[in-house]
Amino acid sequence: MSTNEWPLWEVFIRSKQGLNHKHVGSLRAADAEMALQNARDVYTRRSEGISIWVVQSALITASDPADSEAYFEPSDSKVYRHPTFYDLPDGIEHM
């Protein structure tokens, strides 16, 4: 038996109601077509979705948790970036 592991793929599913694909998990597959079929079998067997994306995990560039202070904390102190200082005219809903 081969000891080589198939590459890891990340799976994104768009649900019937949803507009965007959401990450649901990962799986192993030898190629893209197999990854799609496996995703169909593993992640949509209870009618969870109407569209599937798969992408090889190795192709995703992720931010480094060690950099999270530098990356994300500076925006914490900038409340003025939220548009909360405007008076809303009457009659505007869903803001």
Binding site: R28, A29, D41, V42
Partner: peptide, 8 residues
């Protein structure tokens, strides 16, 4: 042979 194929 693998979990995914077992389910398939």
């Amino acid at each position: 042979p693998i979990l995914e194929e077992d389910i398939a």
